[in-house]
Design a protein around this nucleic acid. Structure first.
Lengths: 340, 340
DNA sequence: TCAAAAGTGTTATCCTTACACCCATGT
DNA sequence: ACATGGGTGTAAGGATAACACTTTTGA
């Protein structure tokens, strides 16, 4: 599952494969070359064997991981390997196409983090594992309010970086450092937009605070590279964390107009489980009553008639996704407002 | 500006370059090989000379057309050349990355359609020309109500196609022919969604109504290929019309949350001109008063103090884009509702 | 004076947000 | 009985959609 190289131009497919277990959004990772090196699963595109990029992606993912992919969506095509790419890192030239894919794993937390299901056994053999995506983006989990790492580490560091050059040197850039900080992190009265995951990551990269920035600059021969800020999550290989940021952004946006959550849910679920899944992905706390009315008025689910006893309180009605909405409404999703 | 071919895998960049003149949205096209063959401008990506795909795109576009591109955005990467691709059509394997780019041309209709501006002279030399995009998508212009071609040609033909197999044979497809017709074309009480340009085109393709479908199926060796329905606009080379459909979809969506219209407007403009440009792109008629309030409350523009006398009636105040909104609001766009 | 297009004021309706409260189960 | 989470009704505020009307120019 590591990059192969041939001469000439090559197309690589990178997959951000997402699942949710309980309240934890997970991303499938593979072990990189060095110790502690974590990467997204990667496969070459062979145009002879596969008619389209998506078919090629599904093919190697399903062969190597025994996972059944639900929704699959192209994210972005990168022609470069990070902005400060090392020559010789990969074959001469790899253009990589990023994909987001959703899959279902054993739904409930049935043991410690290390517990594996049948499909995960297969993965473990290849050095692959689902890991919580907030391990890589601790500043993106706002379910319990603004994360402490934002106030204690990120904002002070970014404010210092803003102070270095409040108005950006680059004249092609539409807005300066100060405004980007304000808009992307929701400071100084600006509303926080949970969809701007990529913007936040790129700001942290540009400010040199994430490990990848330090690594890339060092490789590019820059002498003065400050150490990365601690607490900013686990780095990934190449620009994989940027791809993951793109995936999270896209998924958080898509939730609102397409019923993609249900690709991550078991067949039957309670409304609270559904809410927790949406909260896990969007990184926001939602208002219970409003969420329920939203789901109800959107007619996204129907009661199965069963109830779940595993709640710890009053038993909850079980629901299933109402597939018919796809035929009825043009954009069926959870049109979350600013609060719920 | 035509496809070159070498051995091995190659990356091509296709650009949908959009401008607006008066009430007419335009797309830059180049002459293909055969007579009447129209294509999107195409250029190879050379990873040695250009660090990123976007830099590569801007480079050959600006070199060949003397156009200054504003907003540039990646659309989609296609690994195949149409679903019924002919072998040997292009070099062994070309993966093409589609881009949307916006540019400004002489704003007002200053003569017949053939009139050229300075930059268009350069284009004419390369066989390139801006042409109205609704030439390729006559069913997408709903500014004066539902287009006649929809009622007279498309709906009857699609209903016949639905009657052939109301429930789709393909079980992986979420919704059947009947529902797709209803949702994508807004029949039987479903609301019309002007953003579903790609979905509509693909439906017409699948139903075998557009010229490209006939061409591709014939090339794939299908014996029974009904002639394409007349009146369904000018076909394009390869899958370029699909790329253009993607571009229009994306632009219509983006209008609503990013101030991209202004990339197509001259420095100063009247509110009616702005409205007409938005209507031209979105293909919808907008309610004047509501549009004006929208622009005003969103604080997207500011008066220049000048007035325009070229209105044919009462002179109109001139406005310019208020760049500061980029710093103030997180998603500044024309949040068009269902009516305005 | 009339046509043509600019520009304004106001109301009914729906959707979003937020509040406070009741219900059914396990311990 | 009480803790825990499931589940509901309803009112305030704001945004949207639609109405009809006045103003300023050129011909």
């Amino acid at each position: 599952m590591s990059e192969t190289r041939t001469s000439g131009l090559e197309i690589g497919l990178n997959a951000a494969i997402v699942a949710v277990r309980g309240d934890v959004p997970l991303i499938l990772t593979v072990a990189g070359e060095g110790a502690g090196d974590v990467a997204l699963p990667f496969g070459p595109f062979d145009p002879i064997r596969h008619r389209t990029l998506e078919i090629g992606l599904r093919s190697w993912v399903e062969a190597q991981t025994a996972l059944r992919l639900g929704h699959v969506e192209q994210l972005y095509t990168f022609g470069d390997r990070g902005r400060y790419a090392r020559a010789g890192d990969v074959g001469p030239h790899v253009v990589s196409v990023g994909y987001l894919a959703l899959t279902r794993i054993a739904a409930r937390p049935d043991g410690p983090e290390g517990a594996v299901t049948a499909s995960q056994d297969v993965l473990a053999g290849a050095g692959a594992a689902f890991r919580p995506w907030y391990d890589h983006f601790p500043w993106e989990d706002w379910r319990h309010g603004r994360p402490t790492v934002v106030d204690e580490a990120i904002l002070p560091a970014l404010r210092a970086w803003v102070a270095e050059a409040p108005e950006d040197a680059d004249p092609t850039r539409a807005i300066g450092r100060a405004e980007r900080l304000r808009l992307f992190f929701g400071t100084d009265g600006a509303p926080f937009d949970e969809e701007k995951v990529l913007e936040r990551y790129e700001l942290l990269y540009e400010a040199g605070l994430v490990e990848e920035a330090r690594r890339d600059r060092q490789a590019a021969g820059q002498t003065t590279c400050a150490p990365a800020l601690p607490g900013l999550g686990r780095a990934m290989r190449f620009d994989h964390r940027r791809i993951l940021a793109t995936a999270i952004s896209r998924l958080r946006a898509k939730l609102k107009y397409r019923p993609v959550v249900f690709e991550l849910m078991p067949e039957a679920f309670t409304l609270t489980e559904l809410q927790h899944t949406v909260e896990a992905i969007s990184g926001r706390h939602l208002h219970k009553q409003n969420f329920r009315r939203l789901v109800e008025t959107a007619a996204l689910v129907e009661a199965t008639g069963e109830t779940s006893l595993a709640t710890g309180g009053r038993p909850a009605s079980l629901y299933r996704f109402r597939r018919e909405v796809l035929r009825e409404r043009p954009a069926p999703g959870l049109r979350l407002g600013t609060r719920a």
